Amino acid sequence: MGMSVGSSGGAGGRRRGRARAPMSEINVTPFVDVMLVLLIIFMITAPLLVAGVPIDLPDSRASALEQEKEPIQISLNAEGLAYIDDAQVPFDQLPDALVALRTERGNDDGSAPQVMLRADRTLDYGQVMLVMGEMNRAGLNRIQMVTTGSSERR
């Protein structure tokens, strides 16, 4: 049988006058766990945030404009159907719906609200201009055309 004797030399092996050394290692396991949970949450919710009418927007090198409040979104999909925000509006009811939008969501100073027009790249130019003409007739004359960013020169 072997027995080991400590080298502290004190009674019963107790250390007197020496404090415990501070721990110099950081435990990153909880941090990694939280980051992985957040990563999974963002991976699941990010595709859900891109809601709306699926449109293949044309490319443009123009820079984005500043917004003072939430604009009205009017979309024209590849089939030529019109949407105000996410609600489909038949073309025969579009002029009345645009006039109602002007009165409902107009600015406090009486100016027209900002409108973002999103049109599919495969649409006929005449159809886009028809909708823009109806918007102008309804008094919605602050129109922005939405495109995707591109650095290519054609």
Rank of each mutant, 00 (worst) to 15 (best):
2 G>S: 14
3 M>S: 15
6 G>C: 15
8 S>K: 15
9 G>S: 09
11 A>H: 14
11 A>V: 13
12 G>F: 08
14 R>Y: 10
14 R>E: 09
15 R>G: 10
15 R>C: 11
18 R>A: 09
19 A>F: 02
19 A>E: 08
20 R>M: 05
20 R>P: 01
23 M>Q: 14
23 M>K: 14
24 S>Q: 14
24 S>V: 11
24 S>G: 10
25 E>P: 02
31 F>L: 13
33 D>Q: 12
34 V>R: 11
34 V>L: 08
35 M>V: 12
35 M>R: 07
36 L>P: 01
36 L>W: 08
37 V>I: 12
38 L>K: 04
38 L>S: 10
40 I>N: 04
42 F>K: 02
43 M>Q: 08
45 T>H: 03
45 T>E: 07
47 P>C: 05
49 L>M: 14
50 V>R: 13
51 A>I: 09
51 A>W: 10
52 G>M: 03
53 V>M: 01
53 V>S: 00
54 P>M: 03
55 I>L: 02
57 L>W: 03
58 P>T: 06
59 D>Y: 14
59 D>F: 12
60 S>A: 14
61 R>Y: 10
61 R>Q: 15
62 A>Y: 10
63 S>P: 06
64 A>P: 04
65 L>M: 15
70 E>C: 05
70 E>L: 13
72 I>H: 00
73 Q>P: 02
73 Q>E: 14
77 N>C: 02
78 A>D: 09
79 E>I: 03
79 E>C: 06
82 A>R: 00
82 A>F: 00
83 Y>V: 01
84 I>H: 01
84 I>C: 01
86 D>C: 03
87 A>N: 12
87 A>R: 14
87 A>D: 15
89 V>C: 04
91 F>M: 15
95 P>H: 03
96 D>C: 07
99 V>Q: 10
101 L>A: 11
104 E>W: 08
106 G>L: 03
106 G>E: 03
107 N>P: 03
108 D>N: 11
108 D>P: 08
108 D>M: 14
109 D>E: 06
110 G>R: 07
112 A>G: 09
112 A>C: 07
113 P>Y: 03
114 Q>R: 12
116 M>L: 13
116 M>K: 05
118 R>W: 02
118 R>A: 11
124 D>K: 08
124 D>S: 10
126 G>Y: 05
129 M>P: 01
130 L>G: 09
132 M>L: 14
132 M>W: 04
132 M>R: 11
132 M>F: 06
133 G>F: 05
133 G>K: 11
134 E>K: 08
134 E>T: 05
134 E>P: 01
136 N>C: 04
139 G>R: 02
139 G>T: 05
143 I>K: 01
144 Q>K: 12
146 V>C: 04
147 T>C: 09
147 T>D: 06
148 T>V: 15
148 T>A: 10
150 S>F: 06
152 E>H: 13
152 E>Q: 14
154 R>E: 11
